[in-house]
Simulated assay, not measured.
Amino acid sequence: MKILVIEDEPKLGSFICAGLTQNGHVCDHITDGASGLEALMVNSYDLVLLDLMLPGMNGFDVLKNLQSFGKQVPVIILSALSDTENVIKGLDLGAIDYLRKPFELDELLARVRTVQRRNSGQQTAKLRFEDLEMDLYTREVTRAGKAIALSNREFALLEFLLNNANRVVTKTQILEKVWDINFDPGSNVIEVHLYQLRKKIDKDSDNPLIHTVIGRGYTVKGQLH
């Protein structure tokens, strides 16, 4: 998933992003509410991790603005404001979860996985497509029972393609969901990653799954189980 962390403590924000990246997510870190809201208006995110005590625009104001603009994105609040009143206020403003600081990274990752499962519409942690199986938790990928080693970026790219199986996705859509806001859209990095992923997934197979649709984008063709 592509996740935005709005947290004004640089070390904590970097720690959270490092943990998310190690688990295959794409993470952007912003340290103030106004800039975070701006990023949400111009980029597509699957999840926001939001501190409440932010400089300038606080977390509650970010939630209020998301509501007023009709922006639909899951938000998990991360805050030291742990009294019941603030928890209720945050949830009433649209947050889906509230994690009190300090917290363990494993607990945060578990809550992120819950959102990931909900976003993908999967009742299990596995995606099965033709003879390919992808475990979203253990991050293991196999095809015809043979293990395939993928980088974090390749894993995220494959997950995005499978969640859009039999639909053409454009380079812009891949950019929005799999790369961070600092990515140069003029580079050929996406094409290179797709080439490497295709070599790994379709190697030695008579049934290639990943296809280029000239002038439109990319797709995986087959049956999602």
Score class of each variant (00 low, 15 high):
residue 172 T to Y: 00
residue 86 N to Y: 14
residue 166 N to G: 00
residue 85 E to I: 09
residue 194 L to D: 07
residue 92 D to E: 13
residue 34 A to G: 09
residue 141 V to Q: 08
residue 176 E to Q: 13
residue 26 V to T: 15
residue 151 S to I: 04
residue 88 I to K: 15
residue 44 S to C: 09
residue 35 S to H: 11
residue 51 D to P: 09
residue 102 P to F: 07
residue 133 E to P: 01
residue 162 L to G: 00
residue 54 L to H: 07
residue 192 V to M: 10
residue 99 L to R: 03
residue 57 M to N: 12
residue 104 E to R: 13
residue 98 Y to G: 04
residue 164 N to D: 02
residue 120 S to R: 15
residue 168 V to L: 00
residue 32 D to M: 08
residue 165 A to K: 00
residue 122 Q to S: 12
residue 134 M to C: 11
residue 141 V to R: 10
residue 69 F to P: 00
residue 198 R to F: 01
residue 123 Q to H: 10
residue 79 S to I: 10
residue 95 A to N: 11
residue 22 Q to L: 12
residue 79 S to F: 08
residue 145 G to M: 06
residue 174 I to L: 08
residue 205 S to T: 12
residue 69 F to R: 15
residue 76 I to Q: 12
residue 97 D to P: 05
residue 167 R to Y: 01
residue 158 L to P: 03
residue 6 I to C: 04
residue 69 F to T: 12
residue 11 K to C: 02
residue 146 K to R: 14
residue 98 Y to L: 06
residue 128 R to H: 06
residue 2 K to E: 02
residue 136 L to K: 08
residue 75 V to G: 11
residue 174 I to H: 01
residue 20 L to I: 03
residue 111 R to M: 03
residue 170 T to Y: 01
residue 153 R to I: 08
residue 142 T to S: 15
residue 20 L to P: 00
residue 89 K to I: 02
residue 140 E to N: 11
residue 106 D to I: 06
residue 217 G to Y: 07
residue 67 Q to E: 11
residue 30 I to Q: 09
residue 163 N to Y: 03
residue 15 F to E: 11
residue 30 I to A: 08
residue 115 V to Q: 08
residue 179 W to L: 08
residue 94 G to F: 03
residue 206 D to V: 12
residue 107 E to N: 04
residue 38 E to K: 14
residue 188 N to S: 07
residue 79 S to T: 15
residue 122 Q to C: 05
residue 70 G to R: 11
residue 128 R to K: 15
residue 166 N to K: 00
residue 7 E to D: 07
residue 12 L to Q: 14
residue 188 N to F: 01
residue 57 M to E: 12
residue 196 Q to M: 08
residue 44 S to R: 15
residue 225 H to N: 07
residue 222 G to Y: 02
residue 74 P to G: 10
residue 193 H to R: 13
residue 68 S to G: 00
residue 28 D to Q: 03
residue 127 L to C: 05
residue 204 D to T: 04
residue 76 I to T: 15
residue 156 A to C: 01
residue 14 S to Q: 14
residue 39 A to E: 09
residue 190 I to A: 05
residue 216 R to L: 03
residue 38 E to L: 11
residue 30 I to S: 09
residue 147 A to S: 10
residue 35 S to R: 14
residue 190 I to T: 10
residue 98 Y to E: 03
residue 20 L to D: 01
residue 192 V to A: 10
